[in-house]
Amino acid sequence: MDASDLSNFDLEKLNEKDKAELRQFLGNENQKARVQSTEPRLSIVKAGPAASHANPRLSRERYEFRLTSAPPLSVVVHSLTDMCWKKCVTGSIKQGAMDKNEQSCMANCADRFLDASSLTMKHLQNLRQG
């Protein structure tokens, strides 16, 4: 949350009890937004100057693997919808509802993509240990 967004409120006026409650609320909201999975995700990031802590065995040229926490729920849903729409809604649009085929295609597409990405994770972890 950006600090400047709250600039029109007098946060000084918050008493200790309300400050604690707000902290709790923000913690919950972030948790909800992220829906942490049990294991961290492996992501590939561009290697920058601050990347010295990364495992040197896994870095290649300008890219490196890094363990990150799961992306926010809404980010995942938006990108899956984006990708699966291209695969599943191929004909011209004649009505506002999805037909049975499109519906199951969207569900399968999202599920299989997540299967595939966890497969990638497992494979990379094996490489790391091996």
Partner: peptide
């Protein structure tokens, strides 16, 4: 007309993915 239908359809698709993902989690 296509745009209106498409908009409804995309939102339905979004909801489908959202339900699938949440069920999985």
């Amino acid at each position: 007309t296509c745009f209106t239908h498409c908009m409804e359809k995309y939102m339905a698709a979004w909801n489908q993915v959202s339900t699938t993902y949440i069920t999985r989690i």
